[in-house]
Design a protein around this nucleic acid. Structure first.
Lengths: 189, 189
DNA sequence: GTCTATAGGGGGATAGAC
DNA sequence: GTCTATCCCCCTATAGAC
């Protein structure tokens, strides 16, 4: 019955994620976060010493989140196509809020980030690609999915279609993203 | 015999383009450009009143550049696959310098840009997509290319593979980009 | 845990001399 | 066309009171 009180630290993470997806990492400030949460600059620094620490925490969140998804998919009765759809859905949601995937956003700012962050992002990407790759491989083995390329290559094609698809949608409209999404699903049948 | 002297204005455009592709629009300053060209801050402002004017000039350059490519392709004896390859080559070159396509870079910063710039970027994207779409349509008609989707959708799939492919390569290495590139070419046969 | 106040630096941009 | 000098703003970050 208890609604867990979202503390400030979680709120900062939530807003930070939104800002990265909407404006980009180098285009928002602690002051922006503070204004949004109606607290002061210094309070944000209390929870995350510096902006890089906030970014790192967000990346850790994503890693945990995908680990959770991995467990859910492993224990689910979904067919391969349904599992792939779980990944696609995450991108479809972004479009509706004019936002882009955090990996794509960070990729643009990549050369401005410290090595520690770069390394962790690399791990996140490998993890996500690995999950998609494995799902594709299993689906092919069971005869549920059909594609010519290696599972790794197919995973790369799908994830790049999605990542740049939401970037494109922000500029040219959601219709283009929808065309991509439908084509992806059709291709695997 | 005369080697045209590259004046400062052209040099600024050259460096500005590099910085956008390497660091992102919101992550470099006029001071960075000035340092690179061994001139002062104010000299850059003389050639481009503000940073947005520089960005707009770069977008105009891209539009002209693609118009030139369109003319070249129209008058060439290249088969459809060869024409598509001209687009792919542009992205392959980016990988080697740890850079990403300017459209992808700008897409990340999109919500921080003034409306005038947004509108022009939209036109640039439509132009490039239109060129690829038309090339695909002609190739299919002549029996040189084979794909199931509409030319527009196929163009979207190819361009998003390339745009996010170079973003990915910057983080996970060029091997992934190469896998994408080869798969794209193979898919069309 | 949040505040006020502030340090220190960098950003975009302009005026006016040369 | 480039310079020096400067303005004003916002940024990241910290110290110390509450």
């Amino acid at each position: 019955m208890s609604i867990r009180t979202t503390d400030t630290k979680e709120e900062i993470l939530r807003i930070g994620k939104q800002f990265i997806q909407y404006y980009g990492y180098n285009a928002f400030s602690y002051a922006d976060i503070a204004r949004e949460l109606k607290i002061k600059n210094a309070a944000v620094h209390y929870h995350f010493r510096g902006k890089e620490d906030l970014l790192m925490a967000l990346i850790e969140n994503y890693i945990q989140n995908y680990q959770l998804l991995a467990q859910q998919l492993e224990g689910s009765k979904l067919k391969a196509a349904g599992k792939i759809n779980k990944f696609i859905e995450r991108y479809t949601g972004l479009c509706d809020s004019d936002s882009i995937c955090i990996i794509g956003s960070i990729a643009s700012d990549y050369n401005t980030l410290p090595e520690s962050v770069k390394a962790r992002i690399s791990e996140l990407i490998e993890m996500v690609l690995g999950m998609v790759e494995q799902t594709l491989a299993e689906g092919k083995k069971k005869g549920e999915l059909h594609f010519e390329e290696s599972p790794r290559t197919r995973a790369l094609l799908i994830m790049t279609n999605l990542a740049a698809g939401v970037q494109l949608a922000r500029i040219s409209g959601k219709a283009d993203y929808e065309a991509i999404r439908k084509a992806l699903i059709k291709q695997l049948k």
